[in-house]
Measured scan of single mutants.
Amino acid sequence: QIFVKTLTGKTITLEVEPSDTIENVKAKIQDKEGIPPDQQRLIFAGKQLEDGRTLSDYNIQKESTLHLVL
């Protein structure tokens, strides 16, 4: 699982696999929060994550925290 922290300070927990794409993660966030993926920007280690890449591409491991910017 990974954590996604929103600007409001809320933390969302997501069940993911390293092979999941960023697009996939955004879809999971939409399921939980109702935020359309095209409004979501995910930041990890100061980098904006691209939809077509996977979590493992960015070396995002379990218990990692991503930041969600709208």
Results as ranks from 00 to 15, higher is better:
V4A: 03
L68A: 02
E50T: 07
T13H: 07
K32R: 10
E15F: 13
S64G: 06
L7E: 14
V4F: 03
T8A: 13
Q40C: 09
L42H: 00
G52H: 14
I29D: 00
K26Y: 03
I60H: 01
G46A: 04
I43G: 03
K10C: 13
V69P: 01
I22T: 04
T54W: 04
D38R: 11
T13F: 08
E17C: 14
D31R: 14
L66S: 01
L66D: 01
Q1R: 14
K26E: 01
K62W: 11
L7F: 13
T65D: 04
K10G: 07
S56H: 12
T13G: 05
E33T: 14
D38M: 10
I35Q: 03
D57T: 05
L42E: 00
D31C: 14
T54A: 06
Q1F: 15
T21D: 03
P18R: 05
T54D: 03
K28G: 03
T21Q: 04
I2C: 03
E33P: 01
E50C: 14
S19N: 11
L14Y: 02
L68V: 05
D31E: 14
E50G: 04
Q30F: 14
K10E: 08
K62M: 15
A45V: 07
H67L: 13
G46T: 04
I22C: 03
K10L: 11
L55E: 00
L55G: 00
R41L: 12
T65M: 09
D51A: 07
T8P: 05
N59H: 10
I12K: 01
S19A: 09
L7H: 15
F44M: 04
I29G: 00
E15G: 07
V69C: 14
A45E: 13
K47I: 13
R53G: 07
A45W: 09
I35K: 03
L7C: 15
S56L: 12
E15I: 13
T6Y: 14
F3S: 05
T54R: 11
R41F: 14
E63R: 07
Q61P: 13
K26T: 02
S64K: 04
E23F: 14
L66G: 02
K28W: 05
I60C: 03
T65H: 15
L42Y: 03
D38C: 15
Q61S: 11
L42I: 07
N24M: 15
N24Q: 14
G9W: 04
N24G: 09
I29M: 03
G9N: 06
Q48E: 15
K5N: 06
T8M: 11
L70D: 10
I2A: 02
E63K: 07
K28R: 08
Q1I: 15
S64I: 05
R53T: 06
T21N: 04
